[in-house]
């Protein structure tokens, strides 16, 4: 019998939605294979939040608390997680993908001499083998891969699995692991963050994304207004980031974030594969575009052919009215 370890991802000491998706799937895999499930969370002040992990059927939680996690650098994560992996000795490690995870995971895979596979969308266990599916070729193809290595570390693409309901009656042992001294050959200098009160793309149930069609800052602001009435996150294509209309952290696509909200509204987005690679897993997709031949319509559940400058303000008013009632 083996063990599965889930690495929780958190922001501002709050566990992200993507972690519960991965935990739910890991629990299923553990139950089906007679394995045990453990979890680890690292952060500045996460002892309280860590308890939430138990609600998903975890039998043991490791916490690594240290002020070094305040500003992101990869080394403290690599060293802290290596300690936990040595203590837990899992066969399989699963972690939801984020920009930080994409950064520290290659180092962790090297440090633990594991087999690493990034951005998986399906996982199964077959005896001693781990089998996965993952997109490749700009998400125009899907591959099946397997590894029979003693330790396999997988990052999981957001939206690949559904989170189950938390069972708040559950609890388990929590072990605090000391990070110790870390030999960091890097210095964190500065965080340039786009200050926004809006929900982040990672956690949003609704994403309103825009592309070249919005033309300029005033078109972008129309989309922001629509996002605000929905309580949604704003997303963007690479083109709008490049010409300075949208913040780089809003970019959705192959280079950028992969999102899978319940509702994705694509405003003035033609639907190039570099963009759709980051959103095609959304549950419901709406496209607003004046070009009826735009490729985005081929993956949209509802397509509105028309001028976004007419439609978006009217949609904003309609949603505002709906939410008010």
């Amino acid at each position: 019998m083996s063990k599965i370890l889930v690495i929780a991802d958190q922001k501002d000491n709050k566990i992200k939605k993507s972690t519960f998706e991965v935990l739910s799937e890991a629990k299923k895999l553990a139950d089906a294979s007679g394995s045990s499930l453990e979890a680890v969370i690292l952060g500045e002040a996460i002892a309280q939040e860590a308890k939430v992990l138990a609600h998903y059927g975890v039998s043991k939680i490791y916490t690594v608390e240290n002020s070094m996690f305040k500003n992101y650098l990869n080394r403290p994560f690599i060293d802290g997680l290596k300690k936990v992996i040595d203590a837990s000795s899992p066969k399989l490690v699963m972690v939801p993908t984020s920009e930080s995870v994409k950064d520290y995971l290659p180092g962790l895979v090297g440090a633990t001499n594991a087999c690493g596979i990034m951005d998986c969308s399906a996982v199964s266990l077959d005896g001693g083998k781990v089998q996965i599916e993952r997109p490749l070729m700009a998400a125009k193809a899907v591959s099946k891969m397997e590894s029979s290595d003693d330790l396999v570390i997988l990052s999981i693409r957001s939206g690949s699995f559904d989170a189950v309901e938390a069972d708040t009656s559950l609890s388990c042992d929590i072990e605090s692991v000391d990070l110790g001294t870390v030999d960091i050959k890097a210095v964190f200098k500065e965080l340039i963050s786009a200050q926004s009160d809006r929900v982040s793309l990672d956690d949003a149930n609704v994403v309103i994304a825009c592309g070249r069609g919005v033309k300029d800052k005033s078109g972008f602001e129309l989309v922001e207004k629509l996002a605000d009435v929905f309580g949604a996150a704003v997303g963007s294509t690479r083109a709008l980031v490049e010409n300075g209309i949208a913040e780089p952290s809003l970019q959705v696509g192959q280079t950028g974030k992969v999102v899978s909200p319940d509702l994705y509204i694509a405003v003035g987005i033609s639907g190039a594969v570099q963009h759709t690679a980051g959103m095609s897993n959304s549950k419901v997709i709406v496209a607003i575009n004046k070009d009826e031949e735009a490729p985005i319509f081929s993956l949209s559940d509802y397509g509105l052919v028309g001028d976004l400058f007419d439609i978006v303000p009217k949609l904003t008013e309609a949603v505002k009215e709906l939410k008010a009632n």
């Binding site: 992101y72 650098l73 984020s98 950064d103 500065e190 965080l191 340039i192 786009a194 990672d202 952290s249």
Partner: peptide
Amino acid sequence: GDAGQEKV
């Protein structure tokens, strides 16, 4: 990075 641009 996740929260914005990190200078390292």
